[in-house]
Design a protein around this nucleic acid. Structure first.
Lengths: 147, 147
DNA sequence: CCGTATCCTTCGTGATACTG
DNA sequence: CAGTATCACGAAGGATACGG
């Protein structure tokens, strides 16, 4: 049952994303893609159709959705099934490999949504500090005291 | 001690990354940036200098490192300290907010490094299937049987 | 040493139109 | 319905040179 497939003399390589040429860099690129995060999130629990995905992801173009789905399929993270009907129906579902990743991406999405306020505040502070630095007392005669 | 700072009548907004205009989209963009993942990873445990970061991240240009660091600083994820010495010394360290994120990013890096082999294999399979589909029996007289 | 400024090339992205 | 093809544009990214 679990008979091992003969391995073609594999070099046991330990990947390292800090190496410029490491393929994990490409992987990070895909994982880190905003559309990837959103698409995999929707497929986490259920199989979905192309049009459904496009409807549920605000602002994604047909081209980018196709491109993202193709990439994910190629990487083995999702599976694409075509039903030979008229009109055609195509369904996408997550693979076991994809399932090992989807939790991490959900965590990223959650982090973004949870900490968005803090980040927005930090941005305001930063921009204000920049403004003050380049324009010491321009805005008004009021001295801004930070503490 | 834990006296609350007066909140400016904040609307309790629940962010949703599936909305096109949601700021969390921007957050995902930054988080999901390959350089962000690598930079924050290096700053997880220790304060580092600009030149050290550049040396440790293979293939990053000065421009992109600067850009990434600025963005992270603006988002409140890292802090930048300039020591008024000659020659100048600048150190970057992670903030408490950044600390809440760095674990997730480490998990992403780990996932990439752990599952790289499976992904590469999936890519080979996909490419081969594509090749076979577009070129049914061209490569040789041998019929390829998949199962 | 730590940047900023500039140029230049490449890539991603959206809009549009067309096909099985 | 679910794509593919093409074009056109701006942003991303690298290389180089210069500045505090």
């Amino acid at each position: 049952m679990l008979e091992q497939i003969e391995q073609p003399l594999q070099i046991v390589s330990s990947w390292n994303a800090y190496q410029a040429a490491c393929p994990t860099r490409l992987m990070l690129n895909r994982i880190a893609d905003k559309w990837t995060v959103l698409v995999l999130g929707l497929l986490e629990n259920e199989t979905k159709r192309f049009s459904t995905l496009q409807r549920e992801i605000g602002g994604i173009s047909q081209k980018m959705l196709t491109q993202t789905l193709r990439g994910l399929e190629r990487d083995g993270l999702i599976a694409r099934t075509v039903y030979p009907e008229v009109p055609p129906r195509v369904e996408y579902k997550i693979t076991p490999l994809g399932n090992t990743l989807v939790g991490l991406l959900a965590a990223l999405r959650d982090w973004s949504e949870t900490h968005m306020d803090e980040v927005l505040q930090a941005q305001r502070d930063y921009d204000q500090a920049q403004q003050a630095a380049s324009n010491p007392e321009a805005a008004s005669g009021v001295r801004v005291v930070r503490f």
